[in-house]
């Protein structure tokens, strides 16, 4: 009798364990909403017109205004440049080192997290923060000295990973860059 009671007692707890871990809790966890990180950018350009040989400054302040995420990326690209030499990083407080992307480098595309890729058609700088806590402001300041007269164009965008929805990139409409991802477009008129 004692043995039987013991078997029932042990069986009960083992059954509870498997029911909870295999059925009840997984269903509960899977029904919770996914975290959606949401990047936001503020871009400030020191000048809209300069003379050739002068520099201007581009300040980017970015943050995640959504849920906790894994990676927060800000990309600043220069479609008029062949080399990144005229661009100098003046301020930088992202948690990971900046990454320079050259023409021809393999890069991700269409917010796919690496499953789709393309090749870079112009140079860019990527700033990354990991993990991606909401409400923490990241600063990137660039000093740019154009080498040619004319319109100097800059693309700026931010992507958060996991890329849960259209909220996880900024901007979410407008001009598409070489990665088929939306960018804010800025320009400075460089006088001869």
């Amino acid at each position: 009798m004692k043995r039987l009671l013991f078997c029932v007692f042990a069986g009960f707890f083992i059954a509870v364990y498997f029911i909870l871990t295999l059925f009840v809790l997984p269903e509960q966890f899977l029904s919770t909403e996914h975290l959606v990180p949401q990047p936001h950018l503020n871009v400030d350009l020191s000048d809209s017109e300069i003379s050739l040989g002068d520099s201007f400054r581009l300040n980017v302040v970015s943050e995640n205004i959504g849920d906790y995420g894994d990676i927060h990326i800000v990309s600043v690209a220069f479609p008029d440049l062949v080399e990144i030499d005229p661009v100098e990083i003046a301020t930088y407080d992202f948690t990971q080192s900046s990454k320079y992307i050259s023409i021809g480098d393999k890069i991700g595309a269409r917010y796919s997290g690496g499953t789709e890729s393309t090749f870079s058609r112009y140079p860019s700088i990527e700033a990354t923060t990991r993990p991606d806590y909401p409400g923490i402001k990241n600063h990137l300041g660039l000093i740019i000295t154009p080498e040619k007269p004319g319109i100097f164009t800059i693309y700026v965008k931010s992507v958060d990973i996991p890329h849960a929805s259209n909220l996880s990139h900024y901007p979410d409409s407008g001009f598409l860059d070489h990665q088929d991802e939306y960018v804010l477009v800025y320009s400075v008129n460089v006088n001869p």
Binding site: P26, F29, Y68, D70
Partner: peptide
Amino acid sequence: KIVSPSLIYFVYFELINKVF
């Protein structure tokens, strides 16, 4: 799937019955 760290448990629980 590509699993970034904040998605770990979604994929984990999606797989649990199959793996078991």
